[in-house]
Nucleic acid binder design. Structure first.
Length: 527
RNA sequence: GCCAGAGUAGCUCAGGGGUAGAGCAGAGGACUCAUAAGCCUUUGGUCGGGGGUUCAAAUCCCUCCUCUGGCACCA
């Protein structure tokens, strides 16, 4: 067994139902996972939910229920989203799972023994009403507190701290030495920028149980629960460790019970890519590598940072109502149309802007009229003129297809998903041009042109097959439907099958049907 | 405020000393296999303002304007 390609999404905090941002991050991660599998790697794709903390505790309280009951209900929504997006995740981690908590506690004990965790007084301004410490940012310019916070008192309480500050220089050197550790480059520059400008402080990692009890207990101090960092970030590591991955288990030797001997443990750690949103960059590019370094565990190879979506040029917010509900879009347009729009519209990195008009334009122009119509016209002609039986191989479009296949492979290996889609569509366009230039519908009227018609029809059908293979990581449903319409069994899930000439002569097609039905706009009301 | 980055066709953006580019949108045309889709042709820009360097600037320099991102817990 060899090291798998291990990729993760951020885990979602259960403070509300899933929205576009959650769905987007999962789609790009899924495409990378599927692409690597298609290119021959064994892949482990992890997503999950972050279930502890004050907001969950309070939300449960407000409903008069226990936090675990509340968390179960919300987590089910996120699992349903994963299914609805057709994610190919191999596991779904929940931070309330015992397998996760055991690893978190093991890591804390090791760091405590090593002296990287210490207890100290924490001084701050505490709002009893909101049950939270306030920071300087919450203070108004004149130094007073907004009445929203109620009575604010200066409080000193003991807490546990992680000795992060001593790793600042090491981390700076590390990131400087490895340009691919944080991507895109401008995010890496941001990290280096504040590592240069600000002094890292030690991290407060606990809360007294009197204030917060919905958390993983600090194993060496029953008066405290763990606060966020060692709980949430550690999910990436706890799942491999719980599965018995030697690279994850070994650094915690003596702190974790030895894994039950069972089926061969997967080799996952270190993660190849953590896909995250720009809002949690610092935690993943600063806190997390330091936590791992202190633990003596290898660091993930890359933190890949995506941007946020706006709607119609404005920040999405529940109060203004300009939100995009991914589930509603999928119900109306299909999951592949949703995946296509977010992948084609926005490159990984910058912020994007969702517009319904833009969505419909891409659906209509690129999916229905471009890809869908190409497959439909190609297969319909093969059915009509040749009874749906594939003619002898002919290679007229092979060079064009081969060029696109090579280009898309190179782009997939660099996770340039948007550019890869542009590349795939260049083959769609090429094939549509080919139909017009060769005019098989005219050839069909002249019996003397029968051989030429065979050649053209083969090139078109084979191009459709190649397209299915190329599209698999992005639009798995559509790729599978193209295969089915070509009468091919199995899934187009191996990139090597994109090599020209896979359709055998004499093979019988399935039944052609539009892949993306035209959506006529509702009858425009004329004034 | 500080640190990055960006202003190029109606829209989204590429180009980075030598005759302004692509996709979409718009206009026109020939066709008819197909989801009235597709294909071909085409209109359109003093490259944010001003100054400078140069034989030559969208490109390099200065300056101003505007916008965006980041500056420690919202995907």
């Amino acid at each position: 067994m060899s090291k798998q390609f291990y990729i993760t999404t951020a885990i979602d905090y259960l403070n509300g139902p899933p929205h576009l941002g959650h769905a987007y991050e999962k789609v790009i991660t899924d495409v990378i996972a599927r692409a690597r599998r298609s290119l021959g790697r064994e892949v482990f794709f992890l997503t999950g939910t972050d279930e502890h903390g004050q907001k969950v505790q309070q939300a449960a309280q407000a409903e008069g229920t226990r936090p675990q009951v509340y968390a179960d209900r919300l987590a089910a929504q996120y699992q349903a989203l994963a299914a609805k997006l057709h994610l190919s995740n191999n596991d779904f981690v929940r931070t309330t799972q015992p397998r996760h908590q055991a690893v978190v506690q093991a890591m804390l004990r090791k760091l405590h023994d090593r002296g990287d965790i210490y207890k100290a007084p924490y001084q701050g301004f505490y709002s009893t009403k909101e049950e939270t410490f306030l920071t300087g940012k919450d203070r108004r310019p004149d130094g007073t507190w907004d009445p929203f916070w109620g009575e604010v008192a200066e409080v000193v309480e003991e807490n546990w701290f992680f000795r992060m500050s001593r790793y600042q220089q090491w981390l700076t050197d590390y990131i400087q030495a490895d340009p691919s550790f944080v991507q895109p480059d401008y995010r890496r520059n941001e990290v280096l920028g504040f590592l240069r400008a600000e002094k890292l402080e030690d991290l407060c990692i606990s809360r007294p149980v009197g204030r917060l009890n919905w958390g993983i207990p600090i194993p060496f101090d029953p008066g405290y629960v763990n606060y966020v960092w060692f709980d949430a970030l550690t999910n990436y590591y706890s799942v491999p460790a719980a599965l018995g991955d030697p690279a994850a288990v070994q650094p915690l030797a003596g702190y974790l019970p030895p894994p039950a001997s069972g089926p061969a443990a997967p080799e996952l750690w270190p993660a190849d890519i953590h896909v995250i949103g720009k809002d949690i960059l610092k935690f993943h590019a600063v806190y997390w590598p330091i936590m791992l370094q202190a633990t003596g565990a290898p660091l993930p190879k890359q933190v890949l940072v995506h941007g946020w979506w706006q709607k119609d040029g404005q920040k999405m917010s529940k109060s203004t109502g300009n939100v995009v509900d991914p589930l509603a879009v999928i119900d109306e347009w299909g999951v592949d149309a949703f995946r296509f729009y977010v992948l084609r519209e926005l490159d990984i990195g910058p912020d994007g802007n969702w517009t319904d008009a833009g969505f419909q334009a891409r659906y209509s122009a690129e999916l229905a009229n471009g890809l869908g119509n190409l497959v439909n016209r190609s297969l319909a002609m093969l059915k009509r003129y040749r009874g749906g039986v594939v003619p002898a191989r002919h290679d007229e479009l092979a060079p064009d297809a081969g060029k696109v296949v090579a280009e898309v492979q190179a782009l997939l290996e660099k996770n340039h998903l948007q550019a890869a889609l542009v590349g795939v569509w260049s083959l769609v366009t090429r094939a549509n041009q080919y139909v017009d230039h060769t005019a098989p519908f005219k050839l069909a009227k002249d019996p003397a042109q029968a051989k030429r018609l065979d050649e053209v029809l083969y090139n078109l059908a084979e191009t459709c097959r190649v397209l299915a293979v190329l599209l698999w990581p992005f639009l798995p449903n559509t790729a599978a439907r193209i295969f089915a319409q070509l009468g091919l069994s199995g899934a187009p899930d191996q990139f090597s099958a994109a090599a020209w000439g896979g359709l055998p002569a004499g093979h019988a097609l399935g039944e052609p049907a539009p892949l993306f039905p035209r959506k006529d706009p509702p009858a425009a009301a004329k004034p």
